[in-house]
Simulated assay, not measured.
Amino acid sequence: MDGVAASGETVTAATALAGLILVYLGSLAASFGTFQPQEQKTVRPRYQKRAWVAFAGLAIALLSASLGVLGKWLPNECMANAAVIILLVAFAWGIGIALLTAQEVG
């Protein structure tokens, strides 16, 4: 299967992953908001680190989706293939986010 033919699936997977990461970011923000202002100063660095790592994963997933849309629209094989490769990076990034979170919890 060529990249252009897989673009639809790539866009679907990338936007689904971006949505999951966005939910994770919302959960982080909600969790951070439960702390009192004095406590927030203490936990802010840890929450900021997790939020920026998640934001980077969101950006990578959306880059993959964007390239997938453009690759199918133009149709550009190189762009579509790049979307698939970047999607794989986004999947790995998502696993990394989950692993870091699991390590912090226990």
Rank of each mutant, 00 (worst) to 15 (best):
R50P: 00
L87C: 02
F35E: 03
Q103S: 06
S64D: 03
A59K: 14
L67N: 15
V4N: 08
L70T: 12
F55V: 13
L70M: 14
A56L: 12
K49A: 15
E39N: 11
E39Q: 15
L22W: 01
R44L: 13
L100P: 05
G8Q: 02
S27G: 15
E9R: 11
N81L: 14
T42E: 11
A65F: 13
S66I: 15
A16V: 01
G3V: 05
L28I: 08
I21V: 14
A98G: 15
A61H: 09
G96F: 06
Q38V: 07
A90N: 03
L62H: 04
M79S: 11
A90D: 00
E104P: 04
A83V: 02
L70V: 14
N76S: 14
L62P: 09
I95S: 12
G33E: 01
G19H: 03
Q103V: 14
Q38W: 00
T15P: 05
T34C: 02
G94V: 01
L99M: 12
A13S: 08
W52G: 05
A56W: 04
W73F: 10
G26Y: 02
P75N: 04
P37H: 05
T101M: 02
A30S: 11
I85H: 03
L88F: 03
A14I: 01
E104V: 07
L88A: 08
A90G: 05
L70C: 12
V11C: 09
M1A: 15
R50E: 09
A82I: 01
T42H: 06
A102T: 06
N81M: 11
L20A: 07
G57M: 07
A82R: 09
R44G: 05
A83N: 07
G106W: 03
Q40L: 05
W73I: 09
L22E: 13
W52Q: 14
R50G: 07
T10R: 06
E77G: 04
S27T: 10
A90C: 00
A18E: 11
I86T: 09
F91M: 04
W73T: 15
L20R: 11
Q40N: 08
W73H: 12
A30D: 05
V53T: 11
N76H: 04
R44T: 04
A80C: 02
